[in-house]
Computed example of a mutant assay.
Amino acid sequence: MRLALLFSGQGGQTPEHWRQVDHGVAGELRAALLRALPTIGEGRLASPEMLARNRIAQPLIFVQQMMSWHRLRDRLPRPICAAGYSLGEMAACCAAGAFSASDGLALCAERAALMDAAAAGEHGMLAVLGLDEALVASLAAEAGLAVAIRNAPRHLVLAGPRSGIVSISDRLLAAGASRLVPLAVQTPSHTPLLAGAAVAFAERLAHMPDARLAFPVLGAVDGTAARTVRPALAALGRQIATPLDWAACLQSVRELQPDAVLEIGPGNALTRLFVELAPEIPARACDDFRSDDGIVHWIESCAG
């Protein structure tokens, strides 16, 4: 059975996901979460506005993903690869053994703090569907924005100052965009605005020990496979200020010919993108199921 994992990024988080974390996280991981977010147990993190804040979203999403992975890992076949969308690459590296879950949580909190410090003011991200990349890039540059993620040839994500996103929306619609989707993210991820954060995070990761990963991690920037810790960590630093070619990453997953693809984390956006690219390969998200048993039974059914 050839299983591939996808770990989602920011944007799909809901109050229900964080109730799951608050009620389910335990032991060393809960202690690490309380150090990163001391107010988690006070009921003040449940609003969508709070959950969009970088310093809250990144640690909580990572914990939610690790909780799911820890429940499932002994019941699933060893993955042939993992890939993570933006923040999700942290979880992919952790699942493959690059660092422990508690260390990863601390790193996510540090990552968020560095990103927030690198870009003062109000920023955001906007998904743009239905337009050619060259046109979107040109309009974005005029508004002080940048293409941050390429999900598909006509599905891009822009990032930059909130004022630029507001000013460009009507122009994108007038140019023929089929859909604009503001993301629940308040930082200009994967753009040069975060160059300082990328350098600082890379320096933080550079001193961690090298070792063989349990399975390859495909970098979100270009789909390159890391089989040891050092290149995987280097990719984590680089991607903070570098555009992601998620379409290329999904193509790398497809070329490995998995029997099934499982998305771990809030939402099912990555599953939908993968199904558009490779409808011949079964793909589902953990959020599609009511129980871990349902996930395991589905994967077993994909083995034929």
Rank of each mutant, 00 (worst) to 15 (best):
L105Y: 04
L60A: 12
A82V: 06
L156T: 00
G164M: 07
S301F: 08
G265N: 02
A98S: 10
L172W: 02
G196L: 00
R230E: 07
G294P: 00
G12A: 14
A127K: 05
A83R: 04
P79G: 08
A119C: 09
P216I: 04
W298D: 05
A26K: 12
M208H: 10
R254Q: 14
G144Q: 08
E110G: 11
V157C: 10
M208A: 11
G304I: 14
A118T: 01
D292M: 10
A198K: 00
G27H: 07
L3W: 08
L236C: 07
M1T: 13
I165K: 04
Q251C: 12
D292E: 14
F215Y: 13
R19D: 14
M208N: 08
L193F: 09
A140K: 02
D103I: 07
H123T: 08
A46K: 12
A57F: 04
V166C: 13
P188E: 09
E280K: 04
E276V: 09
T242I: 08
E255P: 01
G265Y: 02
T228Q: 11
L273R: 02
S169Q: 15
L37Y: 01
T242Y: 08
L87G: 01
P153E: 06
L244G: 00
S252E: 07
I168M: 03
L250T: 05
G12H: 07
L76I: 08
A234F: 10
R179M: 12
S189D: 03
G164D: 01
S301V: 10
G124K: 00
A101H: 07
C93H: 07
A36V: 05
L180H: 00
I149A: 11
E16D: 15
L158V: 01
A57K: 00
W246T: 09
D116R: 08
A184P: 06
S301C: 10
D222C: 07
A36R: 03
S178N: 14
D287G: 07
R35H: 14
G104V: 02
A119D: 00
A46N: 13
F7E: 03
F289I: 15
Q64L: 14
C93N: 13
A146Q: 14
Q64E: 15
A225G: 11
Q58D: 03
I149G: 01
A283F: 02
S100R: 06
A285Y: 05
G11W: 03
A232G: 07
L6Y: 06
F289V: 15
A113Y: 02
L29M: 12
N54A: 15
F7Q: 05
I281N: 01
C302L: 11
I40A: 10
H190Y: 12
G160C: 05
G265V: 01
A32V: 09
H297I: 14
C108H: 02
L262Q: 05
L37W: 00
G24T: 09
